[in-house]
Design a binder for these strands. Structure first.
Lengths: 124, 124
DNA sequence: TGTTTATATAAAAGATCACTTATATAAAGA
DNA sequence: TCTTTATATAAGTGATCTTTTATATAAACA
């Protein structure tokens, strides 16, 4: 699979509100299916469906613990990547930035301070 | 529009091979529609269709120059974000990394050297 | 072993999306 | 003004994706 196809596949996997909310929730720490159901209010089969899509894309890992199956985020950097993308999406739409759903990694704003940001001395 | 919805919208906009190739091509510098048609081999209406989607998402800007309409990428950081996401997609699928379609920004590997990467002294 | 709890899967419906074909607009040059 | 070139739009089709409903598996416990 070439880069464009792989990127498309990854983006398609992420391009769903419910899956984004699931990623955010599981990104905090590992969660069982029923925990995700409780958090999102989605039906159990729908949660399982989304979890399978995320697992097939190798973004989540699953392990059984007794009757529960715990899912965890394979790459914490994904949260950063989503934070960056969200930041870009807001920038191009020029809206005010309150508490964002995903966060840029701290060094991101050092390298790209943004148009309104003052230059500042930082310790690296 | 809340964060999750906005992010979904941005991801959906990006989640298409043809649009990714168009972004890469226009990301180099601004291009006319016919240049994109020439590069991608897609039909002109299809290119216009994709360009409109990208423009509606505020990822591209259009300006008329005589008979041509030149499109340019509004946020160069988008290329970085895609580079990061591509890198993550490859990492979780644990495949060998040749020349990637999009690149991580140079400082990315300083902060996240990767499991196989040796630690190294870098000038910041 | 039978029942309950936790999760997965399969089928089907509805919505969304990419693409094609055909046509419209808009500028430039003859 | 008429034609050509560059781009946009609109309608229609097929494919894909989200969601629901119903059912299956698998572990735990009585």
């Amino acid at each position: 699979m070439d880069d464009a196809k792989r990127l498309q596949f990854c983006l398609k996997t992420l391009a769903d509100v419910n899956r984004l909310r699931i990623i955010k929730f599981i990104g905090e720490h590992e969660r069982s299916v029923s925990q995700v159901v409780g958090e999102t209010g989605l039906s159990q089969p729908l949660v399982s469906h989304h979890l399978r899509i995320l697992k097939n894309a190798n973004l989540l890992e699953a392990k059984r613990q007794g009757p529960f199956i715990r899912y965890q985020l394979k790459e914490k950097r994904l949260l950063h990547a989503l934070g960056i993308l969200l930041n870009i999406a807001k920038t191009v739409n020029a809206e005010d930035i309150h508490e964002p759903m995903f966060h840029c990694p701290p060094f991101w704003k050092i390298h790209f301070p943004g148009k309104r940001g003052k230059k500042q001395i930082v310790q690296i």
